[in-house]
Design a protein around this nucleic acid. Structure first.
Length: 553
RNA sequence: GCGCCUGUAGCUCAGUGGAUAGAGCAUCUGCCUCCGGAGCAGAAGGUCGGGGGUUCGAAUCCCUUCAGGCGCACCA
């Protein structure tokens, strides 16, 4: 029995009580689905609901009386072992072992599909993250969004949404010229200009540019800057793409800011917003009246000198997303960009969208890794590439994905490479590899799922706890998708791994494989089904986080 | 000054109005003759920053206050 079915059974019990007059509640006050949750305390049963507490007042009765009535009605339902009333009026529900144990079969047969759902079905979402300038390597701040953004994309898709992951390349503007000038200076042994890029990586780029274009030093200065800029840009972007690919991060679209300018999309955006009535001219510049909405001051789109601002490109980019058919637009930005939230929402509103539903801006707070070496090649930053070389892809991704984005984070690098309980990624991966090895051993000893499944065998406390945990997975995925919080999946996997290890260590009689002189029984087979169900969920969950599920460690 | 985020165990952090506030680390005590000890069981550790309020019920919602981080461009 799934929580959904249980919730429906509760609704039916409420409706029946209203129908026969024992519950004085208007029909429209009966909730279509009743919220059930896993109680913290095991002795409170498999599931609990506070529905009686919530409805008693409206029905003019006491919570306990209402709960007693519901308990009597629900207790007769098939698959339910017992229903109790506790405390002020909680309903505690225990399923019978066979009904609960069926879940293991459901999971094993569903395989990779278990956990996927329809909570976000029909939603079409553009998910933009990282979007770092192509003028230098990715650093630790980008790394947090790389891990969270990619995982969020996977989770949104698992919940049924259609998602395009997008990287906005800020390849326009004065910074690119400074980038070109910096490379040229290094290539020709002259001084890097004020405000230029100085990291060791600029020397590396200069060497690559010279290898591609040995004629660089002989070119007229303007042309040389352009060549250095363009060739350097290509190399830097290639490196970013390679580093992200090695990190397991995939983008569907790499969107160039320059394209917006070259194609005239920026001018078109200005005129479109002008038609909407939100653009005005002042002091020689063209402005967007973002104060019509949530912003605290109006923003310049075209400067007095005729050059468009970065903000104008942002507006054009927003319209591009809208035009390309994405009602939902999620932006993942760093904390240093939180001042942008209101003006981005104002763009949406000026474009005629609903800033509450068509645009969502998630802000990631700072992260620091203690003990990490600062990058010499890029200056005083921690590079994503170095971090992955040092700690490993799985540990970096997991360590970042297991915390919500909106809290500042201080991680210890030494803990992240420890292969022990200090590091939850190994704890979860170890549980997965253990299920794999147990499965192999069981088959060697003649325990085979194909020989049958008697779910009633899974009646031990550690087994029902484990089954209950497995039941939660689809709801956890849906919740992580709806709240945009990948860390919920990681925390769930840690709890599941804990329940699994506890079951494994619980009692020497509760083994998947028989002792050497022992016959294979229904119990061994049932436990193999359960073991394999756990493996399925651990693998599915780790995949949502972009972390590998090793068969052996 | 204004705005956003964050204050939970010694440390790093979970906990989108429910029952006795949880996990890992660190400290202490147990558990390897057969499925992986990278594991398990237990002990100890808390004015949920402070103060008001809403509610049958608040770490969670509202107000206020203190502390820390970040941001307030015709830069990108």
């Amino acid at each position: 029995m799934t929580p959904t079915q249980l919730s429906e059974a509760l609704s039916a019990a409420l409706a029946a009580a209203v129908a026969d007059g024992s519950l004085a509640l208007p029909a429209d006050a009966v909730p279509a689905s009743v919220h059930v949750e896993r109680p913290r305390q095991r002795e409170h049963g498999d599931w609990a609901t506070n529905v009686a507490l919530q409805l008693a007042k409206k029905a003019g009765t006491t919570p306990r009386a209402l709960a007693e009535d519901l308990a009597a009605r629900l207790g007769a339902a098939p698959g339910i072992k017992s229903v109790g009333v506790a405390g002020p009026g909680f309903l505690n529900i225990t399923l019978d072992a066979a009904t609960a144990g069926e879940l293991a079969r459901t999971i094993v047969e569903a395989g990779e599909a278990y956990g996927r759902g329809e909570a976000l079905a029909g939603q079409v979402i553009n998910l933009e993250y990282i979007s770092a300038n192509p003028t230098g390597p990715l650093h630790i701040g980008h790394t947090r969004w790389a891990a969270l953004g990619d995982s969020l994309g996977r989770i949104l898709r698992a919940a049924g949404a259609e998602v395009a992951a997008e990287y906005y390349i800020n390849d326009a503007g004065a910074q690119m010229d400074r980038f070109g000038e910096s490379i040229l200076a290094r290539a020709t042994g002259t001084e890097v200009p004020e405000g230029g890029y100085r990291g060791e990586y600029v020397n590396e780029l200069a060497a690559k540019v010279l290898a591609d274009r040995p004629d660089l030093p002989e070119l007229p200065r303007d042309e040389a800057i352009a060549v250095a800029r363009e060739v350097g840009y290509a190399h830097q972007l290639a490196e970013i793409r390679e580093v992200l690919a090695n990190f397991g991060v995939h983008f569907d679209v790499w969107f160039s800011e320059r394209e917006l300018h070259d194609s005239g999309a920026v001018e078109k955006a200005v005129s479109r917003l002008r038609e909407q009535g939100h653009v005005f001219d002042k002091e020689g510049a063209v402005w967007l009246r973002t104060t019509d909405f949530t912003d605290d001051k109006d923003r310049v789109m075209i400067r007095a000198n005729g050059e468009p601002t970065y903000f104008a490109a942002d507006a054009a980019y927003y319209l591009s997303k809208k035009d390309r058919g994405f009602p939902g637009k999620i932006y993942l930005l760093g904390a240093d960009h939180h001042g942008y939230v209101n003006r981005l929402k104002a763009i949406a509103a000026c474009a005629g969208d609903d800033p509450e539903s068509n645009i969502e801006v998630l802000i990631g707070q700072l992260v620091n890794v203690g003990g990490a070496k600062l990058s010499k090649r890029a200056g005083n930053i921690i590079e994503l590439r170095d971090l992955v070389d040092w700690i490993g892809k799985d540990a970096v991704r997991y360590s970042l994905a297991r915390y919500p984005a909106d809290s500042p984070l201080e991680l210890q690098g030494e803990d992240m490479i420890k292969q022990s309980n200090d590091n939850p990624v190994f704890y979860v991966q170890y549980a997965h590899s253990r299920t794999v090895q147990i499965g192999i051993k069981a088959v060697e000893r003649g325990v085979r799922r194909a020989d049958g499944f008697d779910p009633a065998q899974l009646s031990h406390a550690s087994e029902t706890a484990l089954i209950g945990r497995l039941t939660e997975f689809p709801r956890i995925v849906a919740q992580a998708a709806e709240l945009r919080e990948p860390h919920r999946v990681a925390r769930y996997l840690e709890a599941l791994a804990g329940d699994f290890h506890a079951w494994y260590n619980d009692d020497e009689k509760l083994r998947v494989t028989p002792y050497q002189d022992e016959e294979v029984t229904d119990a061994h087979r049932a436990r193999l089904w359960l073991n394999d169900a756990v493996r399925t969920v651990l693998a599915n969950g780790l995949d949502l986080l972009g972390v590998s599920a090793p068969e052996r460690m």
